[in-house]
Each structure stands twice: as structure tokens, then as C-alpha cells.
Amino acid sequence: MAAGGDHGSPDSYRSPLASRYASPEMCFVFSDRYKFRTWRQLWLWLAEAEQTLGLPITDEQIQEMKSNLENIDFKMAAEEEKRLRHDVMAHVHTFGHCCPKAAGIIHLGATSCYVGDNTDLIILRNALDLLLPKLARVISRLADFAKERASLPTLGFTHFQPAQLTTVGKRCCLWIQDLCMDLQNLKRVRDDLRFRGVKGTTGTQASFLQLFEGDDHKVEQLDKMVTEKAGFKRAFIITGQTYTRKVDIEVLSVLASLGASVHKICTDIRLLANLKEMEEPFEKQQIGSSAMPYKRNPMRSERCCSLARHLMTLVMDPLQTASVQWFERTLDDSANRRICLAEAFLTADTILNTLQNISEGLVVYPKVIERRIRQELPFMATENIIMAMVKAGGSRQDCHEKIRVLSQQAASVVKQEGGDNDLIERIQVDAYFSPIHSQLDHLLDPSSFTGRASQQVQRFLEEEVYPLLKPYESVMKVKAELCL
């Protein structure tokens, strides 16, 4: 049975990233139509530049190519590739079939990587351009969430054990800070992308030097003109047959890092959902379990974690691919890159769409948070109580021993009897502590235990987050809708 299948058929496997999760716009960027249309555009740009620099290419040939950029006979191309065992030459023939007058000058002087690699770089750039505003929107939604809850005390956790208090907004800023680093890295790697350009079979530009009869300047002009037509500021000066596969490492490393950030955020949300302090959106008709109707599973956060793990592992592909590119190139890269580049971007696209949807509907339960604080705060307040007693004339050592005994009794009630923490009640009825009984409410005010959390939130948002989001103001209103 021949390899390949009808990918629109229910009898043929289709990647869930495309069929179930990723956005239509990201799927289109990695589609065959987008790819092969870009090949034709690159052939047109090459012909236009070659004509401008004096090669015998007519206006009629150029116009014929322009008129057929979208006229792609995919069936013919597939048949040609089956016959020739070469995808680029299959599309040269297919393009030439609908451009008979231009057929002889299509791909003039070029090698397969002229269309293959340059198209990949265009796709990487455009895919990054799709991700950047999506990530900015996630940051914006979380920034709104953090600002609104900047002063809401909550129990902090280290080692997932109760620690000092923080605020809900401050905790959210930990998430935002990681995503801001990801946004900066995505922008950097996007701006650092260079075009492969017009380089020939081993990167020496020998074929173009021959076409222009040894004119170095025209060869350099050709490279520059096509690079500018493709919208790049610069091209690699040095290439082998391909652009260095280190570029793929750079791009997928940034995406993998984004995956790590999203995994951490969504894990926190899942843990908070278990504590009943916070939940992701839950639709009115949504079913959490087929057997347990009360369940409210954090399905979206779980999906993000599941896909983020996949995204983090994909960076190993370009690392290994770059390491086995012998001399000017081997074909070890080809099949692998067809999979890992598309999957990385479709996965990143999915987790950003999902995280935006989550961040637009996060639900906080202040009463649950308050109750958990009441359970733990008495123990945390013991040092403040000791200091207040010393100020009232008591002995630190005597007070410490009193607190120690009462704390152990209260802990026994919590752990052995399943009761509430009654340390404060014990202190309130103990005559030894009568000098500070009137101060206990103040000493137990949760806001006095959150330090500068709310001020940190305000400063972080104003100095770091809002300036970073400013270039994306025009796209901030787009909502994230999930079908599944």
C-alpha cells in the first residue's frame, strides 16, 4: 500500500493539533497551500530580480507567473513527485505547466533550498508574528487579574506546605514575570531571523556568478533584492546548502521555554482548584465526569500541561538535527523538520489560546482563602504575639514557653481530632496574655502579614508589564474561544 493518505478522510490519521486544537490561522501558515504558494512567490521574486539585473526574462513571463501564483494543481504535483521522487522539481514542473512561456526560467540558477529553506524562514517569521500578540493578550488578562487582587491576602506555599502570606495578585505576578520573559525572547528570536537568500547549491553562489558572467556586484544585488522582497532586513552571508540548523534550535528553545512557563502556571491553577481557592472557567453544560456528576475538573489547565510537556520535548529534535548536518548538509534534517517545526508552533498556539481562555474567566473564592488563612495564621502570628507581650512588660522566655504549650495543644486538636485551630481562643482565655487581649485582632490582621506584596504588584505592572504590552494595544480586544 502506498504511503500517505487522504487526510480529510475519517479513515486516515490526522494530527489532533490540526484537527482538534490549533487555530485556523496557525494551521494555514503550515498548510501545503501556504507552503507551495510561497515557493511560487519566491520563484517570481527571483525572476523579477534577475530581470532587473539584466537576464533575458520578459515582462510577459513575469506576468504569467504572477497570474498563476494561486493556480496550484495539487493532484498534478503529487503525481509528479511520485514520478520524480523530488518535491521541488515536482512543483517546478507543475508551475511550468500553467506558465508555459515562463517554464524555462522558473528556478533559474537556484537549488531546492532556495524555495525550501527560504519558505521555512518566512513561515517561522509569520508563525512567530501570530504567537506574539496571543502571548501579549494572556499577559494582559493576567495583569488585569493581578491588579484587581493585588491586596487580597492568601496563604503562600513553599514545598506545598503553608508559608508566609502573600497576595493573590502577587502570586499571579510570578506567572506574568515568566511570560514577559517569554514574550521578550519570542520577539528577540523573531527579529534575529535572517533570510537564507540566493546562495546556490553549497552556499557559494557559483551558479549565479556564472549567470551574471562573473559580476560579483550583481550577485550581491540579486541576494539583497530577493531578501528585501521577502520582507527581511538581512540575509546570511555564510550558508551551506541550507541555512544553519542552529536557527531551528533557537526558535524551538524559546517555544519550549514558553511551554515550561505555561505548565507551571496551569499546575498552580490545578492545585488551587483542589484547594477550592480558584477555578478555571466551567461552562453551564460542561460535564466533569461521566460517573461523578459533582466533579469540576480543571480540564483546560490539564490540557495545557499535557501539550506543554510535548512542546518542551520537541527542542531535542533540532538539537540532534543540527549535530548531524555533515559538511554542507545531509538530508537527516528533512523529514524531522517537516514534523517538529509545525508541531512546535501548533502546540504553542494551542496552549496560548487555551491559557487566554482560562485567564479571561478565572474565578476566585475569597471566603475559602480566608478560612485557610484562619487555619494557619495563628501559628504564624506567634512571633508577633511574643513581641507584643514583651512590649507590655512580659518575659520573652516565659511567653515563648506559654505559646509553645498552647500551640501544641491547638495542633493536637487540628491533627488528632480534625478540629479547627483554636490557638487564639486559648490565648484569649489565658490570664497571662490579658495585657494584649485587646491587640489580638490587630495582630491577626492578614494584611499585616503580606509585606509589600501589593506595592510590588503595582510597581511591576507599571514599570515592566504595561510598557512591554504597549506595541500590542491594537490587538488586545480579541477574545479566545474554545470549541473543545
Rank of each mutant, 00 (worst) to 15 (best):
K470R: 14
D420N: 06
L469C: 14
V363T: 05
A3D: 15
A388I: 05
Y432T: 09
S407V: 02
P133R: 15
M389C: 09
R141G: 15
N353G: 13
R372P: 05
R396D: 02
A127Y: 00
E81H: 04
A322D: 06
L272S: 10
T202L: 07
R125T: 07
L341I: 14
A381R: 04
R125Y: 05
L258P: 02
E250L: 11
R329N: 02
C173P: 00
V251K: 00
T52S: 13
G419Q: 12
Q164F: 07
L53K: 01
V405K: 14
G451M: 01
H91R: 05
L443T: 04
A103L: 11
L142T: 09
Q184H: 11
C172D: 05
N68M: 11
F208V: 06
T239L: 07
E383M: 03
L128Y: 07
F379Q: 03
S207T: 15
I249R: 01
A335Q: 05
P10T: 15
I339P: 02
L44Y: 08
C304A: 15
R303I: 01
E280I: 00
H7Q: 15
K199H: 00
L46P: 02
I373W: 02
Q205R: 00
V138F: 15
S359Y: 13
V92C: 13
E148T: 10
T202F: 01
N118Q: 02
I139A: 09
G109I: 00
I358S: 12
H7G: 06
N68R: 09
G5Q: 06
L42P: 02
K147I: 11
D87T: 00
A146N: 05
K35L: 11
F195K: 00
G4P: 11
E370D: 14
E25G: 13
G4A: 15
T227H: 13
L211K: 02
M225G: 06
T267I: 14
L468C: 15
T58G: 09
M65G: 04
S323Y: 04
G418R: 04
N384T: 10
E250N: 10
L155V: 02
K367H: 09
S140M: 15
P471V: 15
V363K: 05
K470Q: 13
A348V: 15
V364Q: 04
M225N: 08
V92F: 03
V405A: 15
L319D: 03
A102Q: 03
L275P: 02
E250V: 08
N71M: 11
T94I: 11
I57D: 00
E279I: 02
R300M: 12
A260F: 04
E81W: 00
S395M: 10
Q397N: 11
L211F: 09
N384Y: 07
E473Y: 13
M26A: 05
A453P: 05
